[in-house]
Design a protein around this nucleic acid. Structure first.
Length: 841
RNA sequence: GCCGGAGUGGCGGAAUUGGCAGACGCAGCGGACUUAAAAUCCGUCGGGCCUCGGCCCUUGCCGGUUCGAGUCCGGCCUCCGGCACCA
């Protein structure tokens, strides 16, 4: 930064500081940003992702989210909508707690400080949030209702407790650290049964306007797959059988099963281990427990396992096959066990090769095979060679060596064998999902307490709704205990309570909820954040919801958005709300990189704060620049040099407007008709462009259109008859109106100075202009003329010239004739209003 | 590995979805103003030829469709994001 003062300051009267001070005070006094709920107007709910108020404050990167939604909100207001544009704080969470542990300051205090910083920084760029609607998820008035929703889910059978694996550091200080010894502990934790909603979560993706890639990510995450469940029989070494169900999408390969693999955590491993194998098996289990998820998940790691020394029976052919355990089988997917078909599955193939297990091909490729039209079965080519495989044949084909199912196409197997299995009670068709239930328990202090009381007699009993909130106790010491329990477990006065059901002595649940719970319903609170009768005001929600436009970073593409959709569906099913999807339209802004092209971060020292740039260039410049620097979705580097161009633009606008102010009594008599038409053309063209660009989030080209309009006005301003005309005044007024949502201060100041307050007291109360397509039609059109695909001439012709006339003009053009001479015109193509193309030979 | 997205001047990026590639801006260059500089204003600004009228090349690479391709199709290369043994 060479100078502290902006470029060219003092050259004109443009003083961004003075404008900001003057207008932000006035607007606050006038209540410009107060939400209106006027029943005669349509509503528009514009929402930013719920931010976590971090101690680092805002960088200009965050503004890449907040400025565009601000522009849209202002734009929609000017277009006559009642706009709800609120802001709140996702204030519970680990960073505040960790900071508190380090500095000894209570998270509530640091949160309050951070919120104050965020609000101050948001005000710097004059975001139009209605602060009367502010919410904070860490306040009892808010989390009372988060608890209420927990109970709603509990009552509907969607909240349950189960043993789950959790990583723990041996000394209990902090988890997920690489250098300390970690191990997995089994803990009883709370889950939400989101998997019950898999189908509506998939189906309703069709009904919302979200970016395709986000919808795909959600689909992949849910991971629906159709197949069969097949119940194998496990033969216990001590005698007797156990059911050993597996899930497969390739039931067509079932006659090729040569062994089974269970996850090491599978509950039947103990029962199915033969005594001589016990030592090896428990050593293997111990070993895989130590492996991190990453190690286990890595596909290029060699697959390992050990045999249990026992056998299973394939229900379809009665064959006895050995049972193994191997940690390439995931305990959490399907039934935690797989049938292994090495001939037709890459993983099983590698495993079988390594341990010398049998490989039996049961699918042959369809090419070369013929089909029996009557039975629909395929017939193998004569003498089908079954060579030794050097890789798994994973493509679908035709079943053979499969008893009664020989000749069946892979694609039909799920249906045919599914029905067969079902009839014999050996399994059946089944749909499986990759995603799991939502683990919400956190063994942490700074979160929303789970409203449950544990009673020896009654079990887990919900806290009655009229006793909410379960208050988070004031604590000064909330280090993790190392026992795997929440710090809350050490607060006697919190833990000891009585059972709401039987009145006997009982203990409170000490886990707190995942922060995603808080952000799964916050959008319902905004319309009436003070509502005391329930989590939200039903009337206000009926009016304002669903959210029309939701904007934030792509990092929440899956979790937050999926959880919020899930809660919404539960609420809909409970009859609480009238919509199934919370966010109609979703947009993700691209990341703003540092000037060096890398992610902005404190350690790289490339963070740009709103404070420094607003101080130097003013809010209008920063806003306009953020919109201008690239397309909304893409990541773009910040540029210290380029922003000065935007600053110059603000100066130039100020300059042009003050030097040639509109005259209230101007008239168009003295202006040349051609110039008047040109001015009118530019007014309508720019209105059209800016309107469409703001609607479609193409802010960069919208700003560019305003610059072009300015350039046009500037070049016409040399003509005294122009600047004294009424058309000039209309152009200025239009320009300022279009500029208003982007650069609110400059637009308002010019609006006042040029006397447009006689139309509207504030440019921000002015109606957004419409455009007249008729004004966009010009009398003459310029046609580029292509000969054999190359531009050879350009002709200006009357717009209403017919094709024959145009053809005559084209063929008479000397430049065109140079290229057609001595040749014949084979084809003459006219794209009306765009171009002429001729093919000559 | 699989699923998404992107590759356009020195730079950030436009291009009405198949129709004048490079809008708008930054940087650069030339000029005006100035004692000088900054700021400002005017001009120029993809590359190469050139007889100053133009000609040729150019949107990651190779091929195709078309009167016409940055845009569509096929095959590669590179970068970014997500998922990652899901049976």
């Amino acid at each position: 930064m060479a100078t502290t003062e902006g470029a060219g300051k003092g050259r004109t009267g443009y003083d961004h500081d003075a404008l900001q001070k003057k207008w932000s005070e006035r607007w606050r006094g006038d209540g410009l940003y107060r939400t209106r709920q006027d029943p005669d107007r349509p509503k528009f709910y514009c929402l930013d992702f719920f931010p976590y108020p971090s101690g680092a404050g805002l960088s200009v990167g965050h503004l890449r989210n907040y400025v565009p939604t601000d522009v849209i909100s202002r734009f929609m207001t000017m277009r006559g909508y009642n706009v709800l544009h609120p802001m709140g704080w996702d204030a519970f969470g680990l960073p505040a707690e960790n900071y508190a542990l380090k500095m000894g300051i209570h998270p509530a205090r640091t949160t309050a400080q951070n919120v104050a910083t965020y609000k101050r920084q948001m005000a710097l760029v004059e975001t139009c949030y209605d602060w009367d609607k502010e919410v904070n998820s860490s306040t009892p008035e808010y989390y009372r209702w988060t608890q209420w929703f927990f109970l709603l889910l509990f009552d509907r059978g969607l909240a349950y407790q189960a043993e789950g694996q959790q990583w723990w550091v041996e000394d209990g200080r902090c988890w997920r650290h690489t250098e300390t010894a970690v191990t997995k502990k089994s803990l009883k934790q709370w889950y939400f049964k989101i998997t019950d909603y898999a189908e509506p979560l998939i189906a309703d993706l069709e009904t919302i306007e979200w970016p395709d890639h986000i919808r795909k990510m959600q689909l992949n995450w849910i991971g629906r797959s159709e197949g069969c469940e097949v119940i194998f029989k496990g033969l216990r070494p001590e005698g007797g059988e156990v059911d050993l169900p597996i899930f497969t999408t390739r039931v067509d390969t079932i006659f090729g099963v040569t062994y089974m693999v269970l996850a090491p955590e599978h509950p039947l491993v103990g029962a199915l281990t033969a005594p001589p194998r016990r030592a090896a098996v428990s050593a293997y289990i111990e070993e895989s427990r130590r492996k991190s998820d990453i190690d286990r998940a890595s596909t290029d790691k060699e697959k390992t396992g050990v045999a249990l020394g026992s056998f299973a029976v394939n229900p379809l052919n009665g064959e006895r096959i050995p049972i193994w355990i191997g940690d390439y089988v995931l305990a959490s997917y399907g039934t935690g066990a797989v049938m292994a078909v090495p001939a037709h599955d890459t993983r099983d193939f590698a495993f079988a090769r390594k341990y010398g297990l049998l490989i039996r091909q049961v699918i042959f490729p369809r090419d070369g095979a013929s089909r029996n039209e009557v039975t629909g079965r395929w017939v193998a080519p004569a003498g089908l060679p079954v060579a030794e495989l050097d890789a798994a044949l994973v493509d679908p084909g035709v079943m053979f060596r499969s008893g009664p199912f020989d000749g069946l196409a892979s694609e039909d197997a799920t249906r045919v064998l599914g029905e067969h299995l079902e009839a014999r009670r050996q399994g059946g068709r089944k749909v499986n999902y990759k995603f799991r239930d939502w683990l919400i328990s956190r063994q942490r202090y700074w979160g929303c307490p789970i409203p449950i009381v544990h009673c020896d007699r009654c079990g887990a009993v919900p806290v009655p709704k009229d006793q909410l909130p379960v208050l988070l106790p004031e604590m000064t010491e909330f280090k993790p205990s190392g026992t795997g329990r929440s710090p809350l477990a050490t607060v006697d006065s919190f833990v000891r309570t009585s059972c709401p059901r039987c009145g006997g002595a009982a203990e409170r649940e000490t886990d707190t909820m995942d922060g995603f719970a808080c952000s799964s319903w916050y959008f319902l609170r905004f319309p009436d954040p003070g509502h005391g009768e329930g989590p939200f005001s039903p009337e206000a929600v009926r009016y304002w919801l669903p959210v029309d436009l939701y904007v934030g970073g792509a990092e929440h593409a899956v979790m937050h958005l999926l959880y919020a959709r899930f809660w919404t569906k539960v609420m809909f099913d409970a009859g609480l709300i009238h919509f199934r999807e919370p966010f109609q339209r979703l947009r993700n802004q691209g990341m703003l990189l540092g000037a060096d092209g890398t992610k902005m971060s404190k350690s790289r020292g490339n963070v740009v704060t709103p404070d420094e740039v607003v101080q130097r260039y003013g809010a209008d410049t920063v806003r306009a620049y953020l919109l201008f620097l690239g397309s909304f979705e893409q990541e773009v580097p910040w540029s210290d040099e380029a922003i000065s161009g935007m600053y110059r633009f603000m100066h130039r606008v100020y300059d042009l407007m003050t030097r040639f102010p509109a005259r209230a009594d101007g008239d168009d008599r003295d202006v040349a008709p051609k110039v008047a038409r040109e001015l009118e053309f530019w007014i309508h063209k720019t209105v059209k462009k800016v309107t469409e660009d703001v609607e479609s989030f193409s802010f960069n080209t919208g700003v560019a259109a305003l610059m072009e309009f300015y350039n046009k006005l500037s070049s016409l301003s040399g003509d005294p008859s122009v600047v004294s005309s009424a058309a000039w005044a209309r152009a200025q007024r239009t320009f300022l109106t279009l500029l208003a949502p982007i650069a609110p201060f400059l637009a308002e100041e010019m609006w006042e100075r040029l006397g447009f307050t006689r139309h509207s007291p504030s440019v921000h109360r002015e109606a957004w202009p419409g455009f007249d397509p008729a004004k966009l039609v010009t009398a003459e059109v310029e046609y580029p003329i292509q000969v054999n695909g190359k531009i050879r001439d350009k002709l200006v012709v009357p717009a209403d010239l017919d094709e024959a006339g145009l053809k005559a003009r084209v063929l008479a053009s000397p430049k065109v004739m140079q290229w057609t001479e001595g040749k014949t015109v084979r084809n003459f193509i006219v794209v009306p209003g765009r171009l002429v193309s001729l093919v000559v030979k």
